[in-house]
Amino acid sequence: MKERLMLGIETSCDETSAAVVADGQSVRSLVTYSQIAIHQAFGGVVPEVASRQHVAVITRTVEQALTEANVQLSQLDGIAVTCGPGLLGALLVGLSAAKGYALVSGLPFFPVHHIAGHVAAAGLEAQWRPPMLCLVVSGGHTELLVVDENFRFQRLGGTVDDAAGEAYDKVARLCGLNYPGGPEIDKLAAQGNPDALDLPRSFLDSEELSFSFSGLKSAVANRLEKARRNHEYLPVEDICASFQQAVLDVLVTKTSQAAKKTGLRRIVVAGGVAANRGLRQAMTQLACRADLEIFFPNPVYCTDNGAMIAAAGSHMMKAGRHGTLDVNAYANLSFAEWQNLTS
C-alpha cells in the first residue's frame, strides 16, 4: 500500500517546528527553530515575542522540512497543524500558514490538539497500538487520558493547579538552576538522597485521578527558607532527589490507579517531562510490577515538535476526521471541543 505523507506544523509556544511523517510513524524530516535562547533573557516565554519569531521563520521551517524529506507539497496526503491549546497569537501563525498551504494545494486539513500530538509521538518510529492509557506530563500539562482506535480521547483526570513541569521549573529557580529546570533537576536528583526532605504527595491516598503540585513547590520553598534561617546546609542534589521522588510517587500511583480502573494494559508516557530519566525508570518499574506495557516517545519527540503533530494528523486521517479551513485557534481547548471541530 502506498505510504501516506503528512506535513505537521507546530507553533503553540516557543518552538517553530515542521515535519513530514509517513503513515503516522516514519519521520522523513523534522525541522525546529527553538526560541529558548531568546526567551531566556526574560526568564520565561513572552507571548508577543514568540509570535513575532514564529512569523519570521514559519515558511522557511516548512520549506526546509519539505526539502529534507525530498517531497513537494503536491506529493503530500494532508496537512496537520496545532490549533490549541497554547498561546493564541503563536498558534494563529502556524494555523494561518497551514491554511495557506492547504488552500493552494487542496490537501485535506487536520487541526490537531496539542496534547493529542504529544500522545501520538509515542507512535513515531514505534508501534501505535490503541486503546491506551496516556500520562501526559509537560510544562503546561499533567493529564491522564485514554486514546481509542479512532484517535478519540477521554480525559480521566489532571492537575488542579500547577503542571508537573511547571513545578520543576519553579523548584529549579528556587535552587538557582538554569531555565528550563527539568533536565537539571533530573540530573542532580540521580546523585542525591530522595528521603532527605519530607515532602507532601497530594491525592496519594485518594482514588481520585487528580494531581496537585502547587503545595509541593511551596513545601520546597518553605524547607529552603527554614534551612537558610537555621544556617543548615542542604545539598542541592538532595533537594532535587526528594522533590523528584515526591513527583514520581504521585505520577506512578495515579497511573497505576488509572490502569486498574480502565483495565488498560498499554500505557503511553508523553510530554516534555517524559524525557526525564527518573520518570522513565519509575514507570518502567511500575510496568514490571503490574505487568503493564509501557511506551515512551523517543526523547527527541518529547518536546514540542512538528512530527508529533503530523503523526496525530495521520491518525485523524485514518479515522476519517477532517477539519475545515474555518477552524479557529484556541488558548484553551478540551478534548470534547476539539473532537467536535472535525467531522
Binding site: S51, V55, I58, T59, V62, E63, L73, L88, G89, L92, V93, G94, S96, A97, A98, K99, G100, Y101, L103, V104, S105
Partner: peptide, 16 residues
C-alpha cells in the same frame, strides 16, 4: 495578532 494572520497565510501561499 491580526496582521500576522494574512502575512502568514500570504507567505505560505506565495511560497507554495
Amino acid at each position: 495578532t491580526g496582521v500576522r494572520m494574512a502575512v502568514s497565510m500570504a507567505k505560505s501561499m506565495a511560497m507554495a
